[in-house]
């Protein structure tokens, strides 16, 4: 006679983050721990202070830059399993930014996948998302409402190009706010189709662009904005969102400001943030992609984190899935 024991969940939510007891490691912990597995290099996922980091090989240079070169990093290539305690672990492409990963955990025949941040849209600056069949899927839900549907990057890149040229004709600069890691490089890659005029970069963006180039990602020609002074006209300048309202931007006046973000899908956000122009470009899954992905993983249980958790879980339940919100400390991402 065998008794069926209810399984202890492979991953639990602790004050320090997602924890796997069977392997004794944390995934994207929000404070220093002994062993940390990192899905990607954005600062709300990759934090300082852990003794040992397991990361993907392509994210190494970026994570080193952000967390310091003297940390201990075990790098892994996509799809190659390694063992931590009782758990077989592997990284799989998430399509979010260069080096981003979903993390697959297998223990006693049960498979869990932690999606990290991911998208399904075309993005040649990183490996495309891979569907990893699993029993339990932990999905993000940053844009988990049906009003969030993305246009193609080509369409939005063309809109950026046109905006830039229009401002150029009027003797103005165009400063585009976009996240320094991932978003900027995606825009710089997509712009190649429309022009070969160089794009100017804020220092913070420049450093990360260099790291992408080192890994062979083809990007449009760029120059340091710092080398340009007052009187600069007709340039497209990429900068992190915070820089636009800072003193730094002043020397590039007159300029129009734009913001590349999924939140720009909504007019009210554009107005509140007082950008002249919004471009709907996101490195997160839109509503159709979230639904599609959940279905394709074949997961029996879905945990929803990071965004519209209540809304997405309720909808999935109504669609016949078994889903519930996973409360974590991740805040809503304003720059996504």
């Amino acid at each position: 006679m065998s008794t069926v024991q209810p399984r202890v969940p492979l991953i639990s939510v602790t004050p320090r983050g997602l924890y796997c007891a069977r392997g004794d490691f944390y995934i994207d912990p929000w404070e220093g721990v002994d062993v940390a597995l990192i899905t990607h290099a954005h600062s709300d996922h990759a934090r300082e202070g852990s003794r040992l980091y397991h990361i993907t090989q392509p994210s190494l240079s970026i994570i080193k830059r952000r967390l310091g070169a003297d940390g201990v990093y075990n790098t892994h290539i996509y799809g190659e399993p390694f063992t931590l305690g009782d758990v077989l672990v592997s990284f799989h492409p998430a399509g979010h930014i260069l080096g981003s990963a979903q993390i697959r955990l297998e223990c006693e025949g049960e498979v869990w996948v932690v999606s990290g941040d991911y998208k399904r849209d075309y993005d040649p600056t990183c490996m495309p998302f891979e569907v990893v069949p699993c029993d339990v899927f932990i999905t993000e839900s940053t844009f988990g409402l049906p009003v969030f549907v993305w246009k193609s990057i080509a369409e939005e890149a063309e809109a950026i190009y046109r905006w830039w040229q229009k401002n150029k004709d009027l003797g103005r600069n165009s400063i585009l706010a976009c996240y320094a890691l991932g978003k900027s490089q995606r825009v710089l890659h997509a712009l190649q189709e429309f022009t070969n005029q160089p794009v100017l970069l804020h220092g913070a963006t420049q450093a990360l662009v260099d790291l992408y180039r080192e890994q062979g990602v083809p990007l449009i020609a760029t120059e340091a904005a710092a080398d340009y002074g007052k009187g600069t006209k007709g340039q497209l300048i990429l900068a992190p969102p915070a820089a636009i309202t800072s003193v730094w931007a002043r020397k590039f006046g007159p300029f129009e400001s734009g913001f590349a973000s999924g939140w720009m899908r909504i007019r009210g956000n554009r107005r509140r943030k007082a950008y002249d122009q919004g471009f709907v470009i996101s490195d997160h899954a839109d509503w159709p992609a979230l639904i599609q992905t959940v279905r394709e993983t074949g997961a029996k249980k879905i945990y929803v984190t990071h965004g519209y958790t209540d809304e997405l879980s309720r909808f999935l339940n109504e669609q016949g899935h078994s889903a519930e919100p996973l409360e974590t400390l991740f805040a809503r991402e304003e720059d996504a």
């Binding site: 409402l145 009003v147 549907v149 899908r265």
Partner: peptide, 27 residues
């Protein structure tokens, strides 16, 4: 094919009825 509550949640995120409707027609 959206239920009432999801329409309302969308509306509350967008803040404008006409805009909510317009965005949802893309589905």
């Amino acid at each position: 094919g959206l239920p009432d509550w999801l329409f309302e949640e969308s509306y509350s995120a967008v803040g404008d009825l006409a805009e909510t409707i317009a965005l949802l027609t893309e589905t």
